[in-house]
Each structure stands twice: as C-alpha cells, then as structure tokens.
Design a protein around this nucleic acid. Structure first.
Lengths: 219, 219
DNA sequence: TTGCATTTCAAACAACCGTATGATATAGTT
DNA sequence: AACTATATCATACGGTTGTTTGAAATGCAA
C-alpha cells in the first residue's frame, strides 16, 4: 500500500468499502471508479484486473485489523474467563465495526457465503488460526480433551458472535421491525454493545460450565 | 402450482433449486432454462419476468416445508424442555435438508444476506412468527418476563442453529479442512446430525438454566 | 523549450444479462 | 381436412459487465 500513489490508494480504499458491503460479484468496476472519482480504465492500469484488485483489497483490509491486539496473548496469563470475555468482546465489536477496520470481517463473510474461491487458502488460514485461539481458551476453561467436543463448543460460542453479521442486513434494510434484538429503543442506546457482549459471555460460560460438571461426573 | 403445465412446473422447480443455491442475482434465466431444458423465452411466456418467477418460486418453496408439523403445537402440552429439543432439531434438520423441503430455508438466507427486497413483508412475517414460537418456549423454560432478555436468549439459541447455514459453503467447497466441526470422520457418520442437535440442546439448556437461577436470586 | 515517461481519459470491445418479437410447431376442435 | 388456440423456438434488442485501445494530458528532466 505504501508504494501506491494517491489514485491507486483511493481505488483500493473504495474497493474495500464496496467489496465489504456488497461482495465481489455485486460490486462493479464502475461502482468503485465513480466512488474513487477515477476513470474505469485506471483499474486496468494500476491493477491488471478486477480479480487482482480484489486480492490486493483483501490484503489491505487484513492490514487494518485492530483486533489483533485485543486477541493476542500479551504474555501475562489472564484468567480463562477473562480471556473468553475478551475474545467475545473483540469479535463482536469487529462485526459491528462499519469502518475500515471492519472491512476484513465483512469481506470474509461474503467469501464464505458466496465464495469466489480467489483467496481460498488465504481465508482458510485466517479462519483456522482464529479457531485455534478460541479452542485454547475452551480447553483452559473446561479441561475438555476430546477435540470433537471442543469443536462443538467452539461452534456454539462462535456462532453467537457471528450471528450479528448474518443479521446485519435485517438491521440495515429494516427488513423486519419485529425481529430480535434490534427493534427496541434499548438497543439504540450507547451501551447496547456491552449488553450484547455480557449476555453472550454469560450464556457461553453457563453452556461450558455444566458441560464441565457433566464431564467430572463421568459424562 | 396445480394449474401449471409440465413446462411451467419444471421451470419453477429448477428455479427453486437455483435460487436456493445461488440467490436471486447470481441465478440467470439462462441457468434455469438450460436446467429445465426449455427455451429462454418460456420464462417470459409463463411468467412475465424473472422477478415474478422468483416470487412464484418463493411461494412454491413455502408450500414444501415439512417442518411445520414438528414445530406446531399439537395440542398436547409437552414439557418445555422437550419443546425446545424439538424446535432445535427441526430447525437444524431443515438447514441440512438439501432437497426441495429445504429450498425455502436457503432462499430466506439469501434474502437476508443479499436482500432483493422483493418479498420483504413476506419474509418478515415468516421470521417473526418463527421467533415468537421460540420466545414462547423460552418463557416456559425460564419464567423470564423482560422481553429484552427473552430476545437475547432467543438470539443465542437461534444463532447456534442458523450457524450451520452460514458454514454450508465451507463444507460444500471445502474452503478449509481445518474448520470446525466437519473435518473429522465422526461428522461423516450417519448420526452426526443427532450429535449436533444434542450438543446444541445441552448448551442452550445450560445457558438458559443459570440465567433462571440468577433471576431467582434477584439478578 | 524540447523530449520523454507517466498518468488520465473517452471510446469501443466482446460477453453476458433480462426481455421482446415474430415465425414455426403442436394440439384440439369443428 | 381446415381452422384456431396454445406452446416452442431462433433471433434480436437495449443495457451492463470487465477489459482493451490509442489518443490526450500531465509531470519532470535536460
């Protein structure tokens, strides 16, 4: 990104915004160029093709992720419960992040739901790395050894966080005023993210704990 | 559907399959027609437009849902725990249903993720009705009265079920061999659906129960 | 200023989209 | 057999897609 000139940089940033919002196929060169206020041919000049621009945008989006800090172990081993809370908080916040640092997350979901298979390996690595991080926390919390069960627990936690991505358009386009949980004034409040995070955390702790009890009692 | 001739019926069925798989925009008239082995003009002859065909297909998909039986109260008030188990089981099974009775579920998700806004009210009604059903079970289970909390709990349960739709393409295109929970032989087994259902049910019961305890202790 | 490399731009390309047309084939009735 | 309504078909339309081209504009060094 550093070796791009102003035009190329503007293209990549507009492309990120568009790809994050609409995905690869639904985003047209014309869209991006009118956003960036450049000629359509500029994309072929600076990037060879739309596909290549997509890959470059993807990599740019990765470089903007700010969650790494919150998720990385900082050496000091915090309690596992705190680690889980931090993990959930960071993941949910990144999903609600509509700015540049949220581009990557949204692009990944488009790739998962309508794969271009352009960055298959790329995404695969990121996701499995993400999963391992949560796996480690689960193991610390439950002492579970069966990798099969660990992954089921992982899925239960992850799914609750990622759900807010699935329902983004329901909020955005107001598809239904009746759907949970964004049709009440409480969720317009400033601390609605904290409320959500607290709830998911509690629900997961409970879900994990009794499993642990079951395990101890020979389940 | 009954008043359609063979050609029109074939078109609708192929359209359902395609729309369920790729969504509205990504599905082309040409795709559908080559599938149904009819001329492209046939769609304009039997249905006025692609949009109209989409709506007709949507309604056809609704008529094929088989989950209604499993989800509907059959008069006899079963234990709330059993109701929850049945609800989770029916929802997850319908998501894994790749046949005609799963068309609707998959079309709905495409609409949610990339709304055409064609059937906005239609979907809205279906979804909110679906939510109410789970809400009722939650209330029976927890005695919770705060509708705000009920919807958070609803979300935690629903998200775990719907997650399997989000990850469909990861399984399908094998985007990652490393992602949970389908990279191990256990999940290729015949009873893997039962395993998943049992797990989600247990996780949810635990998540709900302790909330209940908290409430009783004045939380 | 002259000369050259870089950057921008309008215009056009072939391929695809959803749609429309009018001729042809088919089926059923008189 | 002749007529008519229905159904199917190849073909073409206007619009949009990603991409390409070649000329115009710009920046910069000599």
């Amino acid at each position: 990104m550093e070796d791009y000139n102003d035009t190329a940089r503007r293209i990549v940033e507009c492309a990120c915004e568009a790809f994050a919002q609409k995905g690869y196929k639904e985003t047209s060169i014309t869209d991006i160029c009118s956003m960036a206020e450049v000629n359509r041919a500029a994309i072929n000049y600076y990037f060879r093709s739309k596909e290549n621009l997509f890959e470059k945008s993807f990599r740019h989006a990765v470089s903007l992720i700010q969650r790494a800090d919150a998720l990385n172990d900082d050496g000091s081993e915090k309690p596992a419960t705190e680690q889980l809370k931090n993990y959930i908080a960071a993941l949910i916040r990144s999903i609600f992040d509509e700015g540049p640092s949220g581009w990557f997350m949204r692009m990944v979901f488009h790739e998962i739901f309508a794969p271009t298979l352009v960055s298959k390996d790329f995404i695969s690595d990121i996701l499995s790395q993400e999963r391992s991080r949560l796996d480690a926390i689960i193991v610390r919390l439950t002492g579970e050894t069966d990798i099969h069960k660990i992954r089921l627990l992982n899925m239960s936690i992850m799914s609750q966080c990622l759900f807010f991505n699935t329902t983004r358009n329901i909020r955005k386009y107001k598809i239904s005023q009746k759907l949970p949980p964004f049709d009440r004034p409480e969720f317009q409040a400033e601390n609605f993210l904290e409320e959500i995070i607290d709830h998911v955390y509690e629900f997961c702790i409970n879900g994990l704990n009794i499993r642990k009890t079951n395990m101890e009692s020979g389940y």
